[in-house]
Simulated assay, not measured.
Amino acid sequence: MYKLAGELTQNNARVQVAAGNAAITQGQLDFDFSDLVQIDSTAVASMIEWQREAAKKHQTLHFHSVPVSVISLIQLYGLTGQFQLSPAERH
Results as ranks from 00 to 15, higher is better:
M1F: 02
K3R: 13
L4Q: 00
A5I: 01
G6W: 00
L8N: 05
L8W: 13
L8P: 07
L8G: 06
T9Q: 11
Q10H: 15
N11Q: 15
A13V: 15
V17P: 01
V17W: 03
A18C: 03
G20D: 05
G20E: 02
N21K: 15
A22N: 08
A23P: 10
I24P: 05
T25M: 12
T25L: 14
Q28T: 04
D30A: 12
F31P: 01
F31I: 12
L36T: 12
L36C: 11
Q38A: 15
Q38E: 15
S41I: 07
A45M: 15
S46P: 01
E49G: 07
W50K: 01
Q51H: 02
Q51E: 07
R52C: 01
K56R: 13
K56I: 00
K57C: 01
H58P: 02
Q59V: 04
Q59K: 14
T60H: 05
S65N: 14
P67K: 04
V68A: 13
V68C: 07
S69Q: 13
I71L: 08
I71S: 07
S72D: 13
S72C: 10
S72H: 11
I74F: 08
I74A: 02
Y77W: 13
Y77Q: 01
G78E: 06
L79M: 12
T80I: 09
Q82A: 11
Q84W: 02
L85Q: 07
A88M: 12
E89C: 10
R90N: 12
